[in-house]
Design a protein around this nucleic acid. Structure first.
Lengths: 260, 260
DNA sequence: TGCGAATGTTCTGTAATGCCGAACTCTATT
DNA sequence: AATAGAGTTCGGCATTACAGAACATTCGCA
């Protein structure tokens, strides 16, 4: 979990608590105190104290008394999550446009907001009857192998991209994932020229994705949108067509955000 | 924020971090470091460290560099919130039933889960065109003045109710709010007999609400549902009718949860 | 029914660290 | 240009979060 934030001014207990939340998020069936202590590191007793503290604030909840008590993410997080998402203005503006885009393309669409270099999903429209791609609210898209990620990353200059890739790495998600920084930089130059980014089975096998950025009144990147579908459904000539559709949709969103 | 959790095993830094999140949730337009320090208590420097830590985990986000930098709830909370809500099984079972209930009554309906004595909202169906009541996901309903809260509280025995009221208080939200513990206990006895709870403008002026609990396969309270509408729309004879509707709907949900 | 293993909970000393206050840098405004 | 106020950095001391062990409970198995 290394990102651009200075390590000097971290408060350890809080960082540990955040890690515990992250592990609880990964565990669908909850965790016991001992499991949390083992997975997140730290002693049983301090883990216990941290969990108690988090629970008293509703950030975690527990079920079962006595032995075998299991901890889960608490429902206060639902409230915070709603508030966090509702604050993102691009979401409300993008969703109607995305519904139209999904109607036209029959592909699932997403809107993301840049946060610390990553694209974080803040809204989605699923194509009816389509395969469910596991793209969830709040999910962080990788900068080097997703339509949303590439679109956002293309906003940075080459040096900033190199630094970003350095800190987050370029894990190979499929055989087609670009793992060479220089080759990705060349792709990003294309993205800037064309106005849209392509993920051709680079994040998941058989999945195709096109993304483009939307801009606010100051011309800054306010977020990105994308459509995702099966590679099977995307013919050769459809690729360019899709790119144009997504770019134009992003343009409409930009216009509504005050960009000319 | 005093609840049943032992104060001895709290880790202070984590508690402070949780408080900061709570204050950020209350501030719609974000807060600066100095504002957070002032409101949440503590020095500027330690508040700064805590915010940095939370930001590095995506639990808060900040906008604006240099002076006047503002902090908000981070989007990681959106992901956690979705996960926390999706784990609540009563939600998925209740939502279809609530849609039917809202269709029939033309009132907004809610489903909540009990957590530490409070009813926490985990799902909602808004009546089309109705006034928007500010009942949000993750919101904690008060035990003494809301349909959901009363329904859940009626599950406890009188002593437990007294202890709960003692720790959370009975704030008067309207002129009709019940602030006398003994009178509330009498009401709760009615709730147990009738099978539904009524909030007659006790939480907000002009707002009427009826709630009932649903039970799991062991007969325990798995959650509660409610319908909410304007007092104006609820005629005298409709009251009993509504109660029956809500109770029957809760029964259907209980049946689907394995209760006989 | 009773034993044992594993779990959650409590306790205590100590090393670490989180907290404060003060100094510093930077920006915006007068 | 000066000042006021913001965010950021630094150093030292008191606090406290941590680990480990002891205790209390529960559950499974014979």
């Amino acid at each position: 979990m290394t990102n651009g934030i200075d390590e000097r001014y971290h408060v350890r207990s809080v960082s540990r608590a955040a890690l515990i939340l992250e592990h609880l998020a990964a565990a669908t069936d909850g965790l016991t105190v001992t499991e949390v202590a083992r997975i997140a590191g730290g002693s049983k007793s301090s883990t216990f104290s941290t969990l108690q503290t988090l629970e008293s604030h509703g950030l975690v909840s527990s079920e079962g008394e006595g032995t075998q008590r299991r901890y889960f993410l608490g429902l206060t997080l639902a409230r915070y999550g709603e508030l966090a998402v509702s604050r993102v203005s691009i979401r409300d503006i993008a969703l109607p446009e995305l519904r139209a885009l999904t109607d036209e393309t029959q592909m699932s669409s997403r809107v993301a907001k840049p946060e610390q270099g990553h694209a974080v999903i803040v809204g989605r429209v699923d194509a009816p009857g389509s395969v469910r791609f596991d793209l969830h609210m709040g999910q962080r898209e990788l900068p080097h192998c997703s339509g949303l990620g590439k679109a956002v990353t293309a906003e940075l200059d080459d040096d900033a991209v190199r630094r970003l890739l350095d800190s987050v790495g370029m894990p190979a998600r499929t055989r087609k994932t670009v793992t060479d920084p220089e080759r990705l930089l060349a792709q990003l130059a294309d993205v800037r020229r064309r106005g849209y980014a392509v993920d051709d089975e680079e994040d998941a096998d058989g999945v195709y994705c096109v993304g483009a950025v939307a801009r606010n009144h100051r011309g800054e990147c306010a977020g990105a949108i994308s459509v995702t579908g099966l590679k099977l459904d995307v013919t050769e000539e459809r690729i360019h067509e899709l790119g144009e559709l997504v770019r134009e949709c992003a343009h409409r969103i930009s216009a509504r955000l005050g960009w000319s």
